[in-house]
Amino acid sequence: MTAAQLTAAQRRKLTAVFAAAGIALGAAACSSSAGGVPGPGALSYGSVRSTAEKLQQDKQDTCPFGLDLGKALQAAGIPGTATPDHEYGHAVQGSVGDGLPPQPWPSGASHPPAMPSIPATPPHADVICAYQVGTARLDLELFAVPQPEVAVNLLLPGIQRAAGLPVAALQQVATEQPGPGQTRLLGSKGTAALARIAHQGEGDIVLMLSQNPSTGEPDQALTGEPLRKAAAALVDQLH
């Protein structure tokens, strides 16, 4: 479907998402790094990007950076075993992007007068580790950018899908983001948890643990505070 074929409701929804991300991107350009004080061996944008690039060539089923979902579930008091999910081949996937220049708004979409185009986006690196836990699929995602305080905004479409958020709640996520080392539960169903990672150097790195909505109704044992605790345990593994 092209932008011209979008319904009026879809255009409004898309505009709101872009506006939330774009306004936050503009504000972040003038802000300081959200990296916090990293510990020994802490991640950097460069390490995430180089790992994502390697994963495009050397496929694997073991999540990098010492991330162990099984131990995180145990720490959160969640029963069950986490096994690599092979629905899309190997359980661990990496992708990178080189960023985009400013883009025109979709045809027929309204936009803030001070924002004549969708703002430029920085390069990014993404690592996703997929697991099967009972009948549910859990996705563990590390998303990194070289520009401070914009990773959450660029991840908004994925956050909306994982947490099932309406546009107003998505805008709230863009406005009230977790600080370095903080882990926050997203959405009324509690199917996604988001953390900002303390890191080395410039940039921004976030971790999201979520139930993949493609598996149907959420597994209640993997929602809410237990899911948030599991995400927090994964963050601790990175320290």
Rank of each mutant, 00 (worst) to 15 (best):
R161T: 03
P84H: 08
G94C: 07
N153H: 13
L227A: 08
S44G: 14
A75R: 05
L155Y: 14
T191G: 12
D126E: 13
V96P: 05
S188Q: 14
A4R: 11
T121Q: 14
H86F: 02
E149D: 15
V17I: 10
R12E: 12
I159G: 04
S110H: 12
L155C: 03
A193Q: 04
V37G: 07
A20I: 01
P178S: 09
A125K: 12
T7R: 10
D219W: 00
A130M: 07
A109V: 03
P102W: 03
G181I: 05
P122L: 06
H124R: 13
H90T: 02
R184H: 13
V127M: 06
I128N: 14
A120N: 14
V127R: 06
E87W: 12
A16I: 08
Q160Y: 00
G216H: 10
K59N: 05
A233C: 06
G26Q: 13
A72M: 09
D98E: 11
P178L: 07
A232E: 15
L100N: 14
P101Y: 05
G187D: 08
G181C: 10
N212C: 08
K189T: 02
T51D: 02
L55C: 11
A76R: 04
C63D: 04
V37W: 07
T223E: 01
A42N: 10
R228I: 01
A125N: 06
Q93S: 11
P180N: 06
A233N: 07
A163Q: 05
M1P: 04
E87D: 12
D126Q: 11
H90F: 14
P106S: 13
A232M: 03
P104D: 14
P178W: 09
P84C: 02
A163V: 06
T7Y: 01
S31T: 15
G179W: 02
V206W: 09
G99H: 09
P226N: 04
A233L: 08
Q172C: 00
A27M: 12
L67P: 00
S47R: 11
N153G: 15
Q103F: 03
D68C: 02
L100V: 06
A8S: 15
A8R: 15
P157I: 13
Q177G: 06
D85Q: 09
S117M: 09
D98R: 13
H90E: 11
E53C: 02
P64N: 08
A24D: 04
Q237F: 01
P213T: 03
Q60W: 00
T81M: 12
V173W: 01
P40E: 07
L69I: 08
L209A: 08
Q103D: 09
S117L: 01
R184L: 06
A82M: 07
A42C: 06
